[in-house]
Design a protein around this nucleic acid. Sequence first.
DNA 1: GAGTGGTCTAGACCACATC
DNA 2: ATGTGGTCTAGACCACTCA
Lengths: 242, 242
Amino acid sequence: MDTGLPNAAGVSRYAQLAQELRQRIVGGEWAAGAAIPAETELAERFGVALGTVRQAVAMLAAEGIVQRVHGKGTFVTQGLSGPSLLRFFRFRGPTDEPPTARVHRCQTVRLRAAEALALGQQTGDAALRVKRVRLLAGRPVLAEDLLLPLARFEALRALPTREWEDLLYPMLARLCGVTVARANDELSFGHLDAATAALLDLPEGAPAIRVDRQAFDLGGHCIELRTTWGDATAFHYSAEMR
Amino acid sequence: MDTGLPNAAGVSRYAQLAQELRQRIVGGEWAAGAAIPAETELAERFGVALGTVRQAVAMLAAEGIVQRVHGKGTFVTQGLSGPSLLRFFRFRGPTDEPPTARVHRCQTVRLRAAEALALGQQTGDAALRVKRVRLLAGRPVLAEDLLLPLARFEALRALPTREWEDLLYPMLARLCGVTVARANDELSFGHLDAATAALLDLPEGAPAIRVDRQAFDLGGHCIELRTTWGDATAFHYSAEMR
DNA sequence: GAGTGGTCTAGACCACATC
DNA sequence: ATGTGGTCTAGACCACTCA
């Protein structure tokens, strides 16, 4: 790996190493939750100084695809757990209770152009469209519409709606080997249509916050499009500016 | 500074150095916008290695109180400029136009307990309460209610409402020597009261997004409480999860 | 005690900005 | 040419975890 050159194509050595590690993690050489080799070993194996390895690993840690634990090792992230959309809302009740989910419908559909583009698929490719409701203490609080490309999630097609787990992402990891490392949420405001309002026990036209999510796997590919609706009066979010 | 000990009180050397630099910046030894000494000089002056200085400066950069520019130097942040609340909304029109502001009222009030606590003042201390409207292309889009402790902003008391600048934070920096380095925004949903609706050319009770802001100076002290209202149908925000 | 990540050093060289 | 921050090295030692 030592080329003698300052760095290839203007990319720093640690960035190259980070990319190398990233690919191995995505490729499954080190599984989700498992430890990657110790820094000293990586340094030796790739022929770079310890500091360079540390800088590369720091990049991956900042990207969230790896987590360092002092004294134990560096681990491939387990991925997002799932109840994360609730962070946009403040619902009453025993807050420590985990949310449950009820799948209402799961059908196979063809991707439209915009959806295919976002998911890195071709227009007309097959996908699963899932309608589900998230409940807190048995009370419906969020209505969700998921879109999952069938190419990655064939295993879910035959799954009866009752057997879907409460948390989607751990299920995706277990059944389909897909780890969700990152998600981007776009918030906006709207009013509930009759069907969604009925699901949430709210009047038609009630003010609601809409969250459009794109979820990404370890390789940075978008593997889910999701739209979530929740009561606007329960909306609450904290953002930091600097 | 070299104590020979591993580090004092379990705090790393670079963290100590960062704290030292932080205090000098807050204390005004290096003014906002000015460069702090070069890393090599800091290393020499504080008797630490270059890498340690770099780690300390990296902390300050991550905190946003300093900005590094390759080849030029490291500069104390100029602070937030101001039109930042518009990032929560998507308003139509020529987007590159800067927002303007119109101050409707500015009065001296006594702080209530909760406000004083947040601002680090005593209950009953004097403060300025300012009502203003932000306009885009001459159209009112945001209604704001500012609360500024008089202890820090005596200079604003005598300022006629017409002479308030469009951007608050640069004005605070110029007239009062206060740099706003960071702000925390809490978003929630509500309906406009009659007075606010009138200011925004919206019907009373119109759905609105409310932003409660705390702004902090370089020393991390809260120096402003602000509540902003904007049309919910123009609301839009993007959040990243990892 | 062995292995891991975290801190620190002293120095070399590279890349960018400015004069 | 000079000065700045950015990269990289080779090695030492510290702090944490676990068998």
